[in-house]
Design a binder for these strands. Sequence first.
DNA 1: TCCAAAAGCTGATAATTATCATATTTCTGA
DNA 2: TCAGAAATATGATAATTATCAGCTTTTGGA
Lengths: 236, 236
Amino acid sequence: MIRKFEQPNCASCGSRKHSVFCELHGQELADLNDDKGCVFYKKGQIIFNSGQMPQGIYCVHEGKIKVYQVGDEGKEQIVRLAKGGDILGYRSLLGGGKYSSTAETLDDSKICFIPKNTFSKLLESNGTLSMLMMKLLSADLKMAELKMTDLAQKPVRERVAEAILYLKQTYGLDDDNETIAISLSREDIANIVGTATETTIRLLAEFKQEGIIRLDGKKIAILKPADLLKVANVTD
Amino acid sequence: MIRKFEQPNCASCGSRKHSVFCELHGQELADLNDDKGCVFYKKGQIIFNSGQMPQGIYCVHEGKIKVYQVGDEGKEQIVRLAKGGDILGYRSLLGGGKYSSTAETLDDSKICFIPKNTFSKLLESNGTLSMLMMKLLSADLKMAELKMTDLAQKPVRERVAEAILYLKQTYGLDDDNETIAISLSREDIANIVGTATETTIRLLAEFKQEGIIRLDGKKIAILKPADLLKVANVTD
DNA sequence: TCCAAAAGCTGATAATTATCATATTTCTGA
DNA sequence: TCAGAAATATGATAATTATCAGCTTTTGGA
C-alpha cells in the first residue's frame, strides 16, 4: 500500500540544494521538475536490480538506501549508502550497460526518478552539472579505492570501527548527539565491513565491553569517539 | 640518464586514437600537442606520489604503470594498471585535493604531461571529452566495486587466478599467444591480489602443478585458459 | 495478543591465510 | 665476472576469521 503524497517541487527541494542539481535554474530546473516522478518506497523495497538496464537516474528526496552487489555465495557486499540529496544509478547510466548493483531502501523513502533523456539533455546543456558529476564519480572512486586497500590490509576489528564511523558520517547523530541516526541489522553492518555476521556481533560486543559504544537493539551510540577513531586506525 | 627522443605528435599518436582524446580535432588537438610535454621514465620511477597536488594529467604514450596505495604497514595495494593510451591522475585532478595514490613505472615508459589549464579548457569546450571522462570514471568505479566484493568474499586462490586474467586482459599476450606480455614480481602480483607474497608464490606453483600455467622467471604463460577461468570463478 | 520466524548471541571447532625462518636462485652494479 | 643483495621458494607454525550448532531475544503479521 503506497501512501499518497504531494510531489515535491524541485525548485524548493532542500535536498536538491545539496545535490549535483544545485546549479540548475530557470528552464532547466522547470524541465527537471516536470519530467521527474517521485515515488514512495517502503522499507526493504528494491529500487533497481543488478542486471536491469538503467532508464534514468534516481534522486533521493528522503530516506536511506543501501547499494550492494551479491557475491557467489549469495552474500551481499554493500558498496555505498545513500540518503536525501544523493543520486543513484548514475554509474551504470553513464558507463553504459546494465546495473551491476542493487539498490534497496533501509527505511521508508521518497525517491524521484529522472528519465535518461532529461538527464542527458541537462548534462549537455549544463557544463557545471557535468563537472559536478565528474567530481562525484571521482569522490566515489576515491572511496572505493581506499576501501579496496582496507579490505586487503586491515583486520576486521579496525574495519568494523571504520564502518561505525562511516555510518555516523553518512547519517549523522540523533538529538542526544551520541546515537547514530540509522538502524541496521548486524548482517547489514557485516556486509559493509566484508565479514561474517557473527564476527561483527562479537566485535560490537567487544567495543561495548570496552565502553567505546553503547548498544540498544539496532541502535549504536558512540561513547568515546576518540577511542573509536584509534581502533579504526584512521588519521582523518 | 634520460635518453633523448623525439616528442610525439598528438595528431599522429596511435595511443591517442584509443584514448579519451580520440574525438579532438583542429585547434583543440593543436593546443593539446603544443602544451603537452613528453618525458622518458626508466623502469621503477615514480610519476606522481600520494600527497602531492595534481598539476595536470598524465597520458601514457608507451609503457606500463602501476598505481597503488600504501597501507598502514607499508604494504602496497595496486588499484590499477595502465598502458599506452591510458591516462593517469585524472581522479585526483577532477575530484580536487591531493593524489591519494602513487604511480610508478613497471617498464621504461614515455609519458606525456598535460597541464591542468589545458585539460580544463578542453573539458569545457568539448562535450564529448566530458562524456568520455564520465564513462571512464564510471568504468573505473565499476571495476573498483567488483574488486571490493571480490576482496571481501572470494578466497585467495580465486583472486590469484583473476589477477592473472586481469594481466592478460590489460597487457595482452606475446607472439606465442600464451605468455602474458608483462613481467611482474611475485610481490606486485600479491599486491594486486591483496595477499601475502608467499601465498601468491604457493598458488602460482599450484596452478603450474595443475598444468594451468607455465612459469618462466617472471613470465606467466596461460596453458589452459578455460581452467583458469573456472578457478577464477568468473562468468565473463 | 500470541506465535512463528527472523535476528541476535555465544561457544566450539575448522578453515584459511599470514608470519617466520631458512634455503636457493636470480639479478645487479662495482 | 663476481659478490652482495634482492627475489623466489618451501616448510613449520601462529593468527585470524569463518563456519556450525544451539540457544535466547526480538519482531512482525494473523
